[in-house]
Write a protein that binds this DNA or RNA. Structure first.
Lengths: 360, 360
DNA sequence: TATATTTATGTAATCGATTACGAATGATGC
DNA sequence: GCATCATTCGTAATCGATTACATAAATATA
């Protein structure tokens, strides 16, 4: 319908050039107050709105950032994105969402696609794809083949920020929680409740967060003089059904566990369902602790103890780190590593005595 | 670091012009096979990637769409966005997320901001801000002052699609669920269970969805010969705490209700908590039905009956309608109104007899 | 008054692509 | 051998902004 008005339209109407209009609109000092006022008034009258696309092409800044997550319909990722959006919106940035569904190929495709769209930065949580088929690179945390996915970003000097699930790449900042501590605290809590045979529902430990939770769990056992038993550690997906399945196996053991610490709230829920099904009592017979503090853990009548990751805060900080990097003109670039402290939310699924208060 | 390579770089290297390079890259027939192959090979060698920004400026298509929601960290909206992203990504579109936090001012600001960014379309669910202070326009569903928010979009011919919370605007498509039917079915179900005094936790009925749920509830009562009692309808926010508060009032009545139908799962949960607190039995004494099928309703031990809105499907369809509109070159523009049928998920919170099966 | 110095504006290049138009080349037909 | 035509490629405009440089006008200085 009505074509968008450009600075040329305004220029023509006022018999001046587009350059003058541009200067008037941008508070350039080299212009008379009279013409500035005139241009501003005319621009308003003609409903002028700056074409950010043209500006982006000229300036090389699109004021768009890409956010890549495995999926958006999980409370954790949605909350992180919420934090990112809230922090970046006032600064004039738009947030572009990409999902990988845990496929490495989509991860690469999304990065390239975002680069073509000229985003000013990429904030991402890496995918959970199973890389187990490839031989592990012995150099701790550095897998050259893997990192080549991010080469394009780094070569083009586009800020990359990892949150939650990161890779160790030189020059790349990251915001994570202290997964080791989260797991350690959860395990210690179970031990404090008198539990001695604590199982661990793990997940792909090629991913740092799952490895660290595993290590935190193990260390807490060791520090309390409890023998670590490999048979009590089972890998399982973050799904209710998978949690049920592996819990069934645990309960079938000669010496079943008296507590379960899961890296996921969903598998923790599956564990609870299976335990109750077998007419065992929670937390008396078996205590259960999850991870992520998904909303439902608080809502259940038998509320589930879980580790809160303050996802919105994580998103906010990731956004702030991005802003620092993108506004840093100096050549000295520093990577920043923020580690948030997790908070154990103690609830009914693990609180043996009625004495202590339950966290809201 | 390494500047991005442009078609001019390729042209210079091959001693041809950028026009030829562009033609080679775009499968333009007016070019020899020899040069095309040469250009393609050189482009690959130089790691050429098309600058979508330049393309967008030239073509007027940014291949970005804006999605505006009250907030992203609710399962419903996150799921809708998931559907939108999954449908639009294969078509080459990026999804830009904006949150309004239910503020009309942010709604307007976001629309304008997206327009400046030259998005190809806007998919949105309108905010829940209370317009009650303004006198209602008698013309059903058409509020001129309100709609002026969308004027810019319509004037510029940018496709606008509403999902879930819509306004009736000429030429604007919408995807909603049949909220009337959802509420009707829920109420009928409660009546089928023998309930006779059914309360309704409503919400701001200036919003269509809440109005329709109210009307569906009312009609079900009437159709079953149950007198409608205004005292049993209470407005309340979609929050657990608010649900508790108003339920307390309901239970304090001389004749308390024997069932509660809530427009929100969260206030339904609050209701349940309050009911159990008062040592009443669910569903024997009081049944509770929510709306939205939030994940936690299924997970609770006392699972909550709720109305599923198939949000991912809603997002997919919204995206498809957008694609139809954006790909429609003809001048005949038609608005499309898709109404999805909601599905009542019957669970323990309302199923009196153990005879019937509970939906998963 | 003549010169120096601001101040305000215009000219034109630039960002990186696409494309209408025109020109050069070679092939074809008679 | 020459007109005709198709093929292939170059020229230059365009999308809508910004900005270095040039220039004209206005003001200050001696």
């Amino acid at each position: 319908m009505s074509k968008k008005t450009t600075i040329y339209d305004i220029a023509k109407k006022l018999n001046i050039t587009a350059a003058t209009v541009s200067r008037a609109l941008n508070n350039n000092p080299k212009i008379s107050e009279a013409t500035r006022a005139l241009v501003l008034k005319t621009a308003a009258k003609m409903n002028y709105e700056q074409n950010k696309l043209a500006l982006a092409l000229k300036s090389g800044k699109s004021f768009n950032v890409g956010v890549i997550v495995p999926r958006i319909d999980s409370n954790f990722f949605a909350s992180v994105i919420r934090g990112i959006e809230e922090e970046l919106h006032p600064e004039g940035y738009h947030v572009i969402i990409c999902q990988t569904h845990d496929q490495k190929s989509l991860e690469l495709a999304n990065i390239n696609s975002l680069l073509n769209a000229q985003v000013d930065g990429v904030l991402m949580s890496i995918s959970n794809a199973n890389d187990a088929t490839k031989p592990n690179n012995p150099k701790e945390g550095i897998d050259i083949e893997e990192n080549s996915i991010f080469d394009n970003l780094i070569k083009k000097n586009v800020p990359l920020i990892f949150f939650d699930r990161k890779k160790d790449i030189k020059g790349v900042s990251s915001i994570v929680i202290d997964d080791f501590k989260g797991a350690y605290d959860a395990t210690q809590h179970l031990i404090d409740q008198g539990k001695k045979r604590i199982a661990h529902l793990s997940n792909n430990r090629d991913i740092e967060i799952f490895k660290n939770r595993y290590l935190g769990y193990k260390q807490a056992l060791i520090d309390n003089g409890i023998a670590f038993d490999d048979n009590l550690v089972i890998e399982c997906f973050s799904k209710v059904a998978d949690g049920r399945k592996v819990t069934q196996k645990l309960l079938d053991m000669k010496e079943p566990p008296d507590a379960i610490f899961s890296v996921s709230d969903f598998s923790a829920l599956g564990a609870i369902q299976e335990i109750l099904e077998q007419d065992l009592k929670i937390p008396e017979d078996i205590s259960v602790v999850g991870f992520s503090n998904e909303p439902f853990t608080k809502f259940m009548e038998l509320s589930i103890t879980s580790v809160d990751q303050s996802p919105t805060e994580m998103g906010r900080i990731a956004a702030k780190v991005f802003l620092e990097e993108v506004n840093n003109d100096s050549k000295i670039k520093s990577e920043k590593h923020v580690v948030l402290s997790p908070e154990l939310m103690i609830r009914k699924s693990s609180l043996s005595s009625a004495s202590s208060a339950v966290t809201a």
